[in-house]
Computed example of a mutant assay.
Amino acid sequence: MSVCTLLMFCVLPALVGGRASIDSEGTAFARQPGAVMARVGDPVVLNCRILRLGDRVVSWVRSRDLQILTHAGAVFTADARVTVTEAPWETDDGLDPEEWGGVVHLLRIDKVRLSDAGRYECQVNTEPKLSAFFNLTVIEDALPTVSVRMLGATAAAVEGGAVRLTCEARYDGAAAAVDALPALRVSWDRDGEVLDPQGSRGGVSLDTERWPGRTVSRLTLARVSSGDAGRYTCRVADVTASRDVRVTPMQPEYSDIDEELLESMQRDQAAARTGAAARSMPPAALLSALTALAAVFLT
């Protein structure tokens, strides 16, 4: 995966009108990233994914000057660096491509310049018009790389308790352009299965802090059971870091004290009570008791 593609998947998805922008006849923009970064001189591609396009027409417009770049597959600018293509697109969420009519319109700009930065609009000629927006950032430095690592010590928990995992994601080599970089999106899974705070397990919470060029995500599991043990992975696109979580069974109270020790403790307590009772007797009563006891042994 190229660095430019990686940066597209690092950002929070930009949705038009919620999950998708849908008109009365069902045309919709699919879930897709809305921020793209490229380096001066490199090519950049903006991908506009559309469901149920039918016979409708797609246009690309540069928002800065409202320049129509392409319309219905034809290029409307004299800039030879700009091209457009259309291709079938199978959704990544299990939708039937024939039923949903998924297509992707790709706007490509070769040898990108600093002046190409800005907002681009993918339009569909429905009534009313549908639009999806893409923000292109162009930098002169080398594109940054993304690194991900787990913070803190080895994770271990006792059944019924809680465990917290902390993951840091950051851009490396991007000091000059860190403020222009899109925010990093961290996701979590356990043994390959995505963790959902709204899932049936319950007791799963995510806390995220963001700074320019850096994100820290904390995953907390409450009421841990043996089924929560496994390898936990945090990821940004295809960059990952993992940590194994061990769960220790809860020990019953006094389970580490054997029965013989308990019996010994009980005998010592009984002897202590007997001695205390004897010490509390008046002298005359104690002498009488001893005389009676001696008489028993002498008869």
Rank of each mutant, 00 (worst) to 15 (best):
T83R: 12
E121F: 01
D256L: 09
D141Q: 12
V104G: 02
D189L: 01
E259T: 13
Q123A: 08
A78L: 10
T126P: 10
R218F: 00
L69D: 01
L286G: 08
R149C: 02
S131C: 02
E99D: 14
E259M: 10
E86F: 14
L12G: 14
V44C: 06
G118H: 11
G160I: 11
L7C: 08
Y232Q: 00
A153C: 00
R273D: 10
P88E: 04
A162H: 12
Q266T: 13
V82Q: 01
V75H: 01
E259W: 09
V61Y: 03
T215D: 00
F76Q: 11
L107C: 05
A80R: 15
F76I: 00
R273A: 13
C48L: 07
T154W: 01
S288L: 14
S217F: 07
R19V: 04
L181W: 02
E140S: 11
Q198Y: 08
P144D: 01
G17V: 09
R214L: 11
D256P: 00
L151R: 14
G73D: 02
I257N: 10
S63H: 09
P97D: 08
V104P: 12
G199F: 08
L95R: 15
R170Y: 09
M150K: 15
D116F: 07
D93M: 09
R223C: 03
P282C: 12
V124Q: 07
L287W: 04
V104D: 00
R235M: 07
D268Q: 15
I50L: 10
T91I: 01
G152K: 09
G160T: 04
L286W: 08
S200N: 05
V124T: 04
N125E: 05
A276F: 13
M265Q: 14
V186E: 01
W100A: 05
D228T: 08
G94S: 14
L136G: 06
A294Y: 13
S226L: 15
G18Q: 13
M8S: 11
A294W: 13
A285M: 10
T220F: 03
Q32T: 08
L287E: 11
T5L: 07
T291F: 11
G73S: 01
G18M: 05
P13L: 11
R113Q: 12
M37V: 15
V148F: 10
F9L: 05
V75F: 07
V104N: 03
E253N: 06
T233I: 08
T77A: 09
E260D: 15
A78I: 07
I109S: 02
G102T: 15
L262M: 06
V40H: 11
P283H: 11
K111W: 02
C48S: 12
Q32M: 12
L69I: 06
K111S: 13
L136S: 03
L261I: 02
G173M: 09
R185W: 04
D23E: 04
I139F: 06
M8T: 15
Q269D: 06
D110W: 00
N125M: 05
A295V: 08
R235P: 01
R119E: 10
V204G: 05
G230F: 08
E25M: 13
G202I: 15
